[in-house]
Amino acid sequence: MNLPNLLTIIRFILVPVYWGVFFSEIPGRVYWSLGIVLLAGLTDVVDGYIARKHKQVTQLGIMLDPLADKCMLIAVFLSLLLSGVIGISAAIAILIRELAMIIFSAIFHFRGKKTVPANLLGKLTTVLFYVVLFMLMLHLPAAQHLLWVVIGLSYLASLIYISQFRSLNRSSHAK
């Protein structure tokens, strides 16, 4: 196992750690939770940088990296829903998209289809989700409105992924 994939595994481990801290009675638990989410985000940046710089990009990493991001985002949004910070409609919109992306990526992977790496809009959407999460956790003004903007961008990114996926796999069959 290479270092980028190990960092991705650490991000998976941070998901239940986040959940445990967020729902604990630890003083400053929101700040500790934010720190865990930030650590997960940093490991995402670092593992991608190392993988590209040292030519350690693997099919496993291409599949697991976005899955780790989605698991963390789902955990955070569920915690915000359960704590009353976001409403059910926003949570459902996010969960439908994230779960659909996970399920379809797994199905396509196990059917031997080529996986589309993250594009610029997808990466931007992930960063914006983290910004909105911080704003929501800190109860900052305009966070709810920005959340819906980011949800819209995430659906647009999904449409682009679907188009790229179809194009990539259509051209691979033609060869």
Rank of each mutant, 00 (worst) to 15 (best):
F129E: 07
V21R: 03
F77T: 05
I107L: 13
R97G: 10
I62Y: 06
A93M: 09
V46P: 09
I36L: 06
T43N: 10
G41K: 10
N5L: 05
R97D: 07
Q164S: 10
F110R: 13
P66I: 09
I96W: 11
I62L: 14
M135W: 14
Q59E: 15
F165A: 13
D44E: 03
P16A: 06
L140S: 01
V85S: 03
P16L: 01
M72H: 06
L124F: 11
S154T: 03
T125E: 02
L60M: 11
K55T: 10
R111A: 02
L64R: 08
F165S: 12
Q164H: 12
M137K: 03
A142P: 07
I74V: 14
L7W: 02
W32E: 00
M101F: 04
S83Y: 11
L136I: 01
G112N: 07
L80T: 02
S105F: 06
R29K: 12
M63H: 00
I96G: 08
Q59K: 15
S163I: 10
G87R: 09
Q59S: 03
S79K: 08
Q144P: 02
L78C: 14
V45R: 09
T115N: 14
I162K: 09
A68E: 12
I92Y: 06
G35K: 12
I162C: 02
F165W: 14
V131P: 06
L73S: 01
L7S: 06
R97N: 11
I62D: 09
F165E: 07
G61D: 04
W32D: 11
A75P: 05
H145I: 13
V17Y: 10
A100K: 11
G87N: 02
P66R: 02
G20H: 03
Y155W: 00
W19Y: 03
I9C: 10
D69P: 01
S163V: 10
I26A: 10
Q56M: 11
G84P: 07
V30S: 04
P66H: 05
I74R: 01
I160R: 12
M63W: 08
S172P: 08
G61I: 04
A157R: 04
V76F: 02
S172W: 08
R11M: 00
F23D: 03
L95V: 13
E98L: 12
V132R: 08
A106I: 14
T43F: 10
V150P: 07
L80R: 05
A143R: 05
L60N: 09
I62R: 15
L34Y: 08
F108N: 14
F110A: 07
F134V: 14
L159I: 13
T115D: 13
L38I: 12
F77K: 02
S105N: 12
F108A: 13
Y18H: 00
L80S: 11
L14N: 05
L3M: 04
L147T: 02
S167N: 14
L14I: 01
L120S: 09
T8K: 05
I13R: 07
K70D: 11
A143N: 00
V150M: 00
L82Q: 13
I86H: 02
L60T: 10
L81A: 02
V131Q: 08
A75T: 03
D69G: 01
N169Y: 08
M72E: 06
V37L: 13
Y130D: 14
W19P: 00
L60C: 06
V150S: 04
V37T: 10
K113H: 14
L64I: 09
Y49V: 13
L120V: 12
W19K: 08
F22C: 05
F110Y: 15
P141I: 00
I36F: 01
L138W: 08
